[in-house]
Amino acid sequence: MKMRFRLVAIFAFIFSVFSTSYAQTMDNYQELLNQTDKMIAVILVLVIILLGIALFLLFLEKRIRKLEDKNKPIE
């Protein structure tokens, strides 16, 4: 159950990456591009989301590794 929730969370994260990037492409993207400050904000948000995904996956990796080591002797 928890695992499934996490998968949904990953999915939601990645989807939000796109929805934010497309909200920007829809209108007045040209202007936005010129106002470089705002562009930086968009990129920053995306990068933070990506890093969030990476950290989350890393966290899962660590936990799974721990569980794998724990279960080895029983094998």
Partner: peptide, 20 residues
């Protein structure tokens, strides 16, 4: 390769939005 994935994606996301 996981680190590589993140680095490449960072490069693609930043570059893909930055380049006019």
């Amino acid at each position: 390769w996981k680190a590589l994935a993140i680095v490449l994606l960072l490069f693609a996301i930043i570059g893909g939005l930055w380049v006019p």
